[in-house]
Design a protein around this nucleic acid. Structure first.
Lengths: 333, 333
DNA sequence: GTGCGCTCTTGAAGCGCTTCAATAGGTGTG
DNA sequence: CACACCTATTGAAGCGCTTCAAGAGCGCAC
């Protein structure tokens, strides 16, 4: 920067002004300095800028599992919103390892980023949050932290389960099955609870059976599907809510392979997550789309609010709604 | 830091030594200072450290598409290797947008990260690389840059195609089909070329037909699969190399749905990429696993070499080999 | 011709750290 | 007891920038 100043024949402070408050600089000087910057290939040092100015415009996002598109959607949303405010998002993939979650939180903290978004492993969240006295503002995604002094943005899985079941009931299904597991995962139990609520509202006109699986992979769905296909026709459910798209996919595949009930003629199937698996399959799957991008956007908005007006910021808990997407697997002519 | 020094009754420089060269500090002082650090909740400022020391220990990784697990694997590999050297990797998802690629390159450049890994959109690579005079060292992944003054690490797709075809030929298949597209993508053409080479080696005892698809999605595979299933049995290939797992998956699904040839009894099918789709499907898919993690590791190793010994660093081009994974879809009893 | 207000520009202080030359306080030797 | 020789500590300089109080230069009105 000193070189630029010398080359342009101005003072150090003027170069800085060209970078930060161009309107305060006379047009001729501006031109001259900018030319020198180009000529010398000067690249300002953000660390020094941030250090001197006491501000940063990068937001750190610690993500539990980037291979899950739900979280990647959050990152996209965060980036969109950050960009609107002239900020950038840097990602750190903790890859489901609690230690790495901590490592990256410390990294961002020491880098004095403007703020941190944390999508933690739920079981690990409070541990991480208490472990450090985080200087940066933090907004938590997809988990409700114990500490009430923190903003949090979550997805309403109970509502998703409800909407899925509601959709099947509204299209005339009367015997539902919920397929998913393990029930130790709160998204699974929440979705199940939502289904139960929708069924309860029917005052007994709709039945519900629950098939627990050990996981939410396609193989689990296929296993459950074979089981269902083997049932006598009058005992078979006519509407299936799967805890995840992969499970729904497995069920449909099993029905096809076993020459079981036809989808959607005999039975409607609806998944959850809006995976690629949901739309890029033989019978496209109805599903509930997670509000991932929106979560990222909203969390970033909260974070930036907190950063820029710490005084009148009120910590919030937002629970965003999933979106029902109807495709072939639940469409009766 | 000044507070810590005062609290511990030592000089500023001593606190710094505790942080950076603990062995140079008397045990008693060390203890005292560390206690004060804890007590005051002091968190060192990395920006200031990096600025003063003129070094950084974060590596920036600009990734074209994090939703593709190939690139995420690279990130994992990069992280592993970086960790071995006490460094950290921060990710920036350019999301297939050329402008964002540039934005993030600039960001990392201005942040004065130790080095940058770039997995660019191939068509955009040279543009990005020339656009800035990057001060940081850069290693390019998955693309060969025009500039010879740069390290690059790629995956050998030609070899992958060769190995796939070779495997089918070695297990007795004599009439192969390559399914994939568009041929404007170099990975597709490279894989096709590899298949051709394997076929050529057979001196005419193996036939090859090529079915071009418009994309590498499951739907494209299903379309091709229906086409193949409709063929009279004696004209049908007995071994299929798909340009991607999703395509292979689509083909198998179509065969199943159309009651076409049985996989693997009548026809072997092999995919590419080792997607979740490959192993979590009804008939598990043989495939070629991309050396993603290895690419990340190797690229990071090269980068760190270049950073630490710029003098005797020779720029390299490494082409890593994919791994054949044999599963059900190409296993004849 | 003097004074006022204005826009531009300047240079020094300081952001939080590292590093290095200098110093202080031992320990061992003759 | 004087001397050299350690090791532990110190404080100032400096990393590349922002910012702010102060100054320079100018036009305008009276």
């Amino acid at each position: 920067m000193e070189d630029v100043a010398r080359h342009a024949g101005v003072a150090l402070g003027t170069v800085s002004h060209v970078l930060n408050h161009p309107h305060k600089v006379a047009p001729a000087t501006l031109e001259k300095v900018r030319h020198s910057i180009d000529e010398l290939g000067f690249v300002p040092d953000r660390r020094a800028r941030a250090l001197a100015a006491g501000t940063s415009n990068v937001i750190g996002f610690v993500v539990v599992d980037l291979s899950n598109s739900f979280f990647l959607d959050m990152a996209r949303g965060a980036e969109q919103e950050a960009q609107r405010h002239g900020m950038n998002v840097l990602l750190a993939n903790s890859d489901v390892q609690p230690e790495k979650e901590l490592v990256y939180m410390h990294l961002f903290n020491e880098e004095r980023v403007a703020g941190i978004l944390l999508a933690p492993q739920p079981t690990n969240a409070d541990d991480v949050l208490q472990r450090g006295r985080w200087r940066s503002d933090v907004v938590v995604l997809n988990t409700v932290p114990g500490d009430p002094d923190l903003c949090a943005v979550t997805a309403n899985n109970e509502l998703g389960g409800y909407l899925a079941a509601r959709h099947l009931i509204d299209t005339g299904r009367r015997s539902l099955a919920f397929v998913g597991g393990p029930f130790s995962l709160s998204p699974v139990t929440d979705r199940h609870r939502g289904v139960e609520r929708a069924v309860a509202e029917s005052n007994g006109s709709v039945r519900l059976t629950t098939i627990k699986t050990s996981n939410v992979q396609a193989a689990d769905g296929r296993k459950a599907g074979r089981q269902l296909a083997a049932l006598p026709a009058n005992e078979r459910p006519d509407g299936i809510v799967a805890a995840a798209d992969l499970v729904a996919l497995g069920i449909v595949q099993a029905f096809l392979a076993e020459r079981g009930p036809r989808v959607p003629e005999d039975v409607s199937v609806i998944g959850y997550d809006n995976n690629r698996a949901a739309w890029d399959s033989e019978i496209s799957l109805s599903t509930l789309a997670q509000p991932g991008e929106e979560m990222g956007r909203v969390a970033t908005r909260l974070l930036i609010e907190e950063i820029s007006h710490p005084a009148n910021h009120e910590h919030q808990r937002l629970d965003l709604e999933p979106t029902l997407i109807v495709r072939q697997s639940s469409t009766r002519e």
